[in-house]
């Protein structure tokens, strides 16, 4: 009567359709890159500079009237989107207005904000402004740099850690899986045009952490089984290891997804993009540790002779708790 998502003993062949699954992954990555360069990300003000104002009113949002009210202010590019959320009250109407960086100012001037608020009040006297956010070009440039640096550093650090603990082939497998996850996440953000801001970078790094977590658990078992079953070829060992850890892989992903989905539904619109990125990342991260990391490892091969001192790959730390 136990709930079992995965039968207690599985002998599935995860490499039966390896060319199809791996090919699909590569194709998805290519599509993501193409999307990135054609459609592009919907960058938030963190990276572009500019100002966003959140409006709230008991009256319905009239995007057209808002736009008309703001046009005489000559603010350049103005985007107005209505925000819908299950957690809102019946008469809670929210919109998000974004204006571009104003020429010649580091940050938005109080006069601009006051003028905007006055213009919007003339359309809807009940309107309130629960949040205003403004980022100048200097800071947004730095934020882009820091974000890229953070992602690269994170990948480099885990590459190093896994190389320290395993052999270099594992490290490459893990990193290919990581890049796969990040690329696909950026791809889905391009496709759905969800706003990409600083918190999404945090989500990306969490995906890096989670995806690795998953990959490492599989690899840890591979390492153990390589020592135990010296006669089995690498493909069989990989299959055995994935099957043995499958129940755990699914369990952990499901509990994490349960928690995140409740945050997605109930956590409010402010944080929805962030949680969405993590949900997506956990799905692709789980997939990639089985269908990307393992095939790469299979292709690269692993040194099996454990008695000789290692040459080139692996380090003295590799056997710490063997």
């Amino acid at each position: 009567m136990r709930l079992k998502l995965v039968p207690s003993e599985t002998k599935w062949d995860f490499f039966k359709y390896v060319s199809a699954t791996f090919g699909a992954s590569m194709l998805a990555m290519v599509v993501s890159v193409v999307l990135f360069f054609t459609v592009g990300l919907n960058f938030g003000i963190d990276f572009l500079g500019g100002t966003t104002i959140r409006t709230e009113s008991t009256n319905a949002v009239d995007v057209g009237a808002y736009r008309q009210a703001l046009t005489p202010l000559d603010l350049g590019d103005v985007s107005i989107t209505e925000v819908f959320d299950a957690t809102f009250e019946e008469d809670q109407n929210v919109s998000q207005i974004r204006i571009q960086q104003q020429e010649g100012h580091e940050a938005v001037t109080p006069e601009t904000i006051q003028a905007m608020e006055a213009a919007l009040r003339s359309v809807d006297p009940d309107i309130t402004f629960p949040s205003v956010e403004s980022v100048g070009p200097k800071v947004s440039g730095e934020l882009v740099q820091t974000a890229i640096l953070a992602v690269v550093l994170a990948i480099a650090a885990v590459l190093f850690y896994i190389w320290l603990r395993f052999e270099w082939q594992f490290s490459v497998g893990a990193v290919v899986a990581l890049i796969h996850d990040i690329t696909l996440t950026i791809g889905i953000f391009c496709l759905l045009q969800i706003r990409f801001d600083l918190t999404i970078i945090a989500a990306l790094l969490t995906i890096v952490g989670y995806s690795l977590n998953d990959t490492v658990v599989v690899f840890d078992r591979v390492r153990e089984n390589l020592r135990r079953y010296k006669k089995l070829d690498l493909k069989q060992v990989l299959n055995l290891s994935i099957n043995e850890t499958l129940s755990r892989t699914v369990m952990t992903s499901v509990t994490t997804l349960i928690a995140l989905v409740s945050m997605y539904v109930l956590g409010g619109d402010v944080i929805r993009g962030f949680v969405f990125a993590m949900i997506w990342g956990i799905i692709v991260g789980t997939y990639s540790s089985v269908f990307v990391a393992a095939p790469v490892l299979l292709r690269l091969g692993v040194k099996r002779d454990w008695s000789k001192p290692s040459q080139g790959g692996g380090t003295q730390f590799a056997n710490v708790d063997a």
Partner: peptide, 11 residues
Amino acid sequence: FLQERTIGPEL
């Protein structure tokens, strides 16, 4: 001022 943020108490 390079960056600013206002968050209302209700939000």
